[in-house]
């Protein structure tokens, strides 16, 4: 039971990061490998603002600064490359990732910083001891996912996102400002990254310049397993990976190989279902 809840909550963190990857991929058709580092910046923002002792303020500052950061990265680094080869965009994204990590190291030093946002403790739940932070993570994830799904399906702007993701040219002919939609996508993805950073800190209260790297790659894996470009796919992939990870950590014999197991799942899925579980087969248009 404890393992299940932990797996679900870890999966929730992955799912939340994976959503950023998958939405940006679906709409801007690029892999934003700097996405994991936005989490890290969110973490540092919480660390800095926690000096005031106000966790709510810290969360607000983190979300806001991540949104500004994400939108700025898109405007400065990716927008000029629209229409350029995917490889150029990919390399730029990796460059931005290193830039953010190095900046954080220069400003905050390379040693990890401790930050406690909330002392949540644990409770007895269905006969098991469960970290309260895991339940909070799980609950917020479910709410955010549901809200996002409804937003995309039932609002004018949400539908415009689907249209842009399906056919950018046709969307422009509807009068949709594609650049605006892409900016919005980066803003949403970055806000989710900030939340993921918060949940990460509830689980392990350390901030470091590389804290976003591993969750970023895991979440990317989750997005691909679920089918990149698909919002329910990101949730499914994230939860799946989270559960695999917590179960694997339970058994001493395989615990050291947890990462290897997770990435092997990715390879197997790519061999069997190259589009992931919920990914669509896309016809390549000439």
């Amino acid at each position: 039971m404890t393992t299940a809840i932990n797996g679900l909550s870890l999966g929730g963190i992955y799912a939340m990061i994976a959503l950023g990857y998958t939405m940006v991929y679906g709409i801007a058709k690029m892999l934003n490998f700097a996405h994991g580092d936005v989490i890290m910046i969110g973490g540092y923002m919480i660390y800095v603002t926690m000096a005031t002792g106000n966790p709510l303020l810290a969360i607000a500052v983190a979300v806001l600064s991540c949104v500004i950061l994400g939108v700025t990265i898109e405007k400065v680094a990716y927008k000029p490359l629209r229409g350029a080869s995917p490889l150029a965009v990919l390399i730029t994204a990796i460059g931005i990732s290193y830039l953010l990590q190095s900046l954080a190291q220069i400003i905050f030093g390379s040693a990890a910083k401790m930050v406690t946002v909330y002392e949540l403790g644990s409770i007895q739940f269905l006969g098991a001891t469960v970290q309260l932070s895991a339940l909070v993570t799980l609950g917020v994830t479910v709410v955010v996912m549901a809200a996002l799904t409804l937003f995309v399906k039932f609002t004018r702007v949400g539908r415009a996102m689907i249209a842009v993701s399906e056919d950018r040219g046709a969307a422009q002919l509807m009068g949709i400002n594609v650049n605006g939609i892409i900016t919005l996508t980066f803003a949403i993805g970055s806000a989710l990254a900030a939340l993921a950073g918060l949940f990460y800190l509830l689980k392990a209260p350390n901030v470091s310049s590389t804290m976003g790297a591993m969750p970023g790659i895991k979440a990317f894996t989750a997005a691909v397993i679920g089918g990149i470009g698909s919002i329910p796919g990101a949730m499914l992939g994230g939860i799946l990976l989270g559960i695999v990870e917590s179960v694997s950590y339970k058994f001493a014999a395989i615990a050291p190989y947890t990462d290897a197991i997770e990435f092997s799942i990715l390879i197997i899925i790519l061999l069997v279902r190259p589009n992931g579980f919920l990914g669509k087969k896309r016809r390549e248009k000439v």
């Binding site: 004018r156 539908r159 689907i162 249209a163 399906e166 056919d167 040219g169 949709i176 669509k280």
Partner: peptide
């Protein structure tokens, strides 16, 4: 170039 994944109504809405 209609939006294949949307319904007829949603296409008109777009």
């Amino acid at each position: 170039r209609i939006f294949q994944e949307l319904t007829v109504y949603e296409n008109l809405l777009m």
